[in-house]
């Protein structure tokens, strides 16, 4: 189940989409997400859909890989779908007991389905083609103006980076501690909710102690490498807007214009 979540995973590649400036990719993603929520007719999805398919194609990420991300939220989609179908007033399609399925509901459910799927696919595309570190750089750079009003943007980005670095390490450690306690006869699977919660203590205590120890050691190691916040700090990786980014911006604008035109015609 956890393996199916493509949201937040990186798919290594060398395409123009991978190479595009992360700031531009974040902005475009945001624009499209807002765009998706302003769509009111079925046809209005078309320009965004075409653009998304086009981007997936040139990114060289396989379609099935992108769509795999949808599997994880299939249940969620199904439940919201049912609510929509049965709880919307309108012309009755069929009836089970007092539950009435309506055509309007079906329409609405379909509309929601497309919207959520597009939303997932577009955000997946951002994370699939952008390394976490680039993403963090991009966010830090975009939020840079906020430093003027004393928002700790750099510190936030550093926290993100360290969190990303340590997630696999902590996961491995959790697995090891669970095994070690199982080897002492600990049982995490049976009993009621309270008992199960209590059974977590032998895992959580060592995990927290170890996390604090790691944090402590890391802090000293960072100090030894002259870390002192973002004063006079430079960066190895410089973000540059390139021709591709300009082109992407133009495309995005075109797509938005098309969307408005189509919406205007159908309404």
């Amino acid at each position: 189940m956890l393996k199916d979540i493509t949201l937040g995973q990186y798919f290594p590649g060398d395409s123009v989409v991978h190479k595009a400036d992360p700031r531009m990719k974040i902005l475009i993603t945001l624009v499209f997400l807002i765009g998706l929520f302003t769509v009111k007719s079925w046809l209005g999805f078309l320009p965004v859909l075409v653009f998304t398919v086009f981007v997936i194609r040139i990114s060289q990420v396989p379609f099935w890989y992108v769509l795999k991300g949808l599997k994880a939220i299939a249940v969620l989609i199904a439940i919201t779908g049912c609510f929509n179908i049965f709880l919307t007033e309108g012309t009755v399609w069929f009836q089970i007991g007092w539950l009435k399925a309506t055509y309007e509901g079906l329409n609405l459910a379909g509309f929601m389905l497309v919207r959520i799927c597009m939303l997932i696919v577009i955000t997946s595309m951002l994370t699939l083609t952008t390394t976490p570190i680039m993403l963090t750089d991009g966010i830090e750079s975009l939020l840079n103006p906020l430093k003027k009003i004393k928002v700790p943007v750099h510190e936030f980005a550093m926290m993100m980076t360290i969190a990303l670095r340590f997630i696999p390490t902590i996961m491995e450690e959790t697995d090891k501690i669970m095994k070690a306690q199982s080897a002492r006869g600990a049982d995490f699977e049976s009993g009621n909710l309270l008992q199960r919660a209590k059974a977590m203590i032998p895992i959580l205590v060592p995990l927290f102690i170890s996390a604090f120890r790691r944090a402590d050691e890391l802090a000293v190691a960072m100090e030894c490498r002259c870390y002192h916040g973002d004063q006079n700090r430079t960066k190895l990786r410089q973000l540059h807007f390139s021709g591709i980014d300009a082109l992407a911006a133009v495309f995005t604008l075109l797509v938005l214009v098309f969307q408005f035109v189509i919406e205007g015609m159908t309404l």
Partner: peptide, 27 residues
Amino acid sequence: DNQLVATIVEEDVAFGPENLGVPPLEI
């Protein structure tokens, strides 16, 4: 495990010179 900061090797190696304010090309 407790002294590497970044998620990519080259980023980690760059951490020290970045803190020292070394110009990007030199880093």
